[in-house]
Write a protein that binds this DNA or RNA. Structure first.
Lengths: 357, 357
DNA sequence: GTGAAAGCGCTAACAG
DNA sequence: CTGTTAGCGCTTTCAC
């Protein structure tokens, strides 16, 4: 019914969409004025703006962002690189980024690296070719990353998410205090009476966060006069290996608690433990890290060091946006946020953590 | 060290990157030839191609995709709209899409709709402004979608993922047979001895798949002379409500099995059941739908109607790409795939499904 | 094989 | 306030 009604006769149907020139013509103004009506309406007489908008609506005008991005030499696009979306941590983070970016009139372009530095390089290059104005990245290892060095060299603005820039680093990052929060988590385990605590982690190579969290574990153990044990590093980052868990959980000096460096891993470990006939937390406690929503859904609820994932995404985007507009007067009394943002974490205990048998 | 070394003196450092004009100049050829060297090397003498490539390398030339997309009137970008990434189904699907698209030289632009038709409209408009060549979409309700109608009207190519186009529809879709597979799943429950089976679903409004799967349940029940019961629709799509589950699971005619229209929901329901003191599958069975990786990770493993999520993503992209190049000779003997692709599902039983007590 | 020239749709000086 | 004029970086006829 409305099929042909909402299209002006002056506009060829499928052939070509109306451009700003068409709008200008229809409104009886110049191309420049039409452009201004959209981008700086303050510079145009109100009635003219209305005329342009009306013409645009009439012609079903849809601005071609490719044109403006090219001309403006600014894409208003943010490149996002995450290791994977199949770990809900990053999916939750994405939501924060999408909300923050679109609200600010920016577009997002997402790629995943699968924790693979070679692929990180490729994907970043791909983003660069799209002329993103900047990026939000989670890399395998921020302290040893060829691609980050390259970005620094080229002067491309980026903000790390989850990766925690080293103190004094010139890099920007938004994360929790990985080491400190992990230490707190393990200390909660110790406070609950645990002495033999082991860490289960994804491949250390693939995640500097995992290493930092292990360091936190070591801090906690030493601070309480306990001997830290070697971590069990599982090759795949998200699934676990019943065999290795079995070896670890057996024996006379078997641990009474596991600290897993991420929640997905923790859920896998708990299942392995159950398969070995162990009850969690009755026979053995498990503490995760990430605080993904799923953890609160399972029974018993997964104890975890909770990061504000969505907020990490929002803040990372906000920080990047702030880098784009360095002019803006900083909030006067509130201290200007440094390059390194450490967001507060929380501990979710109970559930899979209890006192040792 | 390499800071200034890898940049030609002729190229201003941070000021401006080398463009194709610079490359052409450095190689002593025209702009046109330089362009051809990249896009149609067959049209250029081999030695010339080499010269251009060499110059490009020397200048660290990085093609500006914005320029080529604008000029070529073809963005080689695919817009992707998914309800959320926080359900692993869609995250797994994304991986398939990313692999397929990048391999074919296409870029992806992702947006999420949060199952909200109003937001679907906004996000689609946003994709259109970016001049995506086409889209892969999962909408709330494919049979009643204003935005899909609009796309049809405008002649924008798109492929539905997960949504199953109605038989005879002109729309393209890649999914499993939602109704048929659900029926099979429920029949497996019946075969295991269950008679009182209830469906737990997310909000029907938000997912046509959920409704189709419920229809499959009804088919199965009726085919076996059983009375289908009303579904329990939970307002939030991924979490569950212990209170309603309690009401449902109690009483003399309490169901012996639940069929949940997605895995995340199933995991929530299982937790609720446990909190009510019920053991799964000993006291009550639970069957999910989706086959997310997580389901195989929990203990007992989540029984589920398994869809090939990654493949759905790959195939949806492949189908869209095929629509872009309608010329290509179709595979001769293999029947040309119709608009509606139904991928095979599998049943993963055991785990949370057992014979009734 | 290669080059010259004409824009894709839009923004941003610079004049009035 | 509004119009004129140049391009952004690239592809693509159309000649040679």
């Amino acid at each position: 019914m409305k099929r042909n009604q909402d299209r002006s006769p002056s506009m060829p149907d499928a052939a070509g969409a109306a451009t700003l020139v068409d709008v200008a013509q229809a409104a009886g103004v110049s191309l420049a004025t039409a452009s201004r009506a959209f981008n700086s309406p303050a510079l145009v007489r109100e009635s003219t703006v209305q005329r342009v908008l009306e013409a645009a609506r009439h012609l079903s005008f849809r601005p071609n962002l490719l044109g403006s991005k090219l001309r403006a030499q600014q894409s208003r696009m943010i490149g996002v690189m995450l290791p994977t979306l199949e770990n809900a941590v990053f999916a939750e983070c994405w939501r924060g980024m999408e909300d923050a970016a679109l609200a600010a009139g920016y577009s997002l372009m997402l790629v995943t690296s699968a924790y693979d530095p070679a692929r990180e390089r490729e994907r970043i290059e791909y983003l660069l070719r799209h002329r993103v104005d900047g990026m939000v990245l989670t890399v395998a290892d921020a302290a040893d990353s060829a691609v980050l060095d390259q970005l620094d060299r080229e002067g491309v603005p980026y903000v790390l998410a989850y990766n925690q820039a080293a103190t004094g680093s010139r890099r920007h990052s938004v994360s929790v205090d990985n080491r400190g929060s992990a230490r707190e988590g393990v200390e909660a385990l110790i406070a609950a009476g645990h002495r033999r605590i082991r860490v289960v982690s994804g491949a250390f190579m693939a995640s500097d966060r995992a290493r930092q969290r292990f360091d936190g574990y070591r801090d906690a153990m030493r601070a309480h006069g306990l001997a830290p044990a070697e971590p069990l590093c599982l090759p795949t980052h998200t699934a676990s290996n019943a065999g290795q868990i079995r070896a670890l959980a057996a024996g006379p000096d078997a641990p009474t608690a596991f600290f897993c460096t991420n929640d997905l891993l923790a859920i896998g470990v708990i299942s392995d433990l159950k398969r070995l006939g162990l009850r969690v937390p009755r026979d053995i406690s498990v503490l995760g890290y990430d605080g993904i929503a799923l953890g609160a859904l399972v029974e018993p609820a997964l104890a975890s060091v909770v990061q504000p994932n969505t907020e990490i995404g929002e803040r990372a985007v906000a920080r990047l946006l702030a880098r784009f507009a360095p002019s803006r007067a900083k909030p006067p009394d509130d201290a200007a946020p440094g390059r390194i943002t450490l967001l507060p974490h929380t501990l979710r205990l109970g559930g899979t953590v209890a006192a040792p048998a």
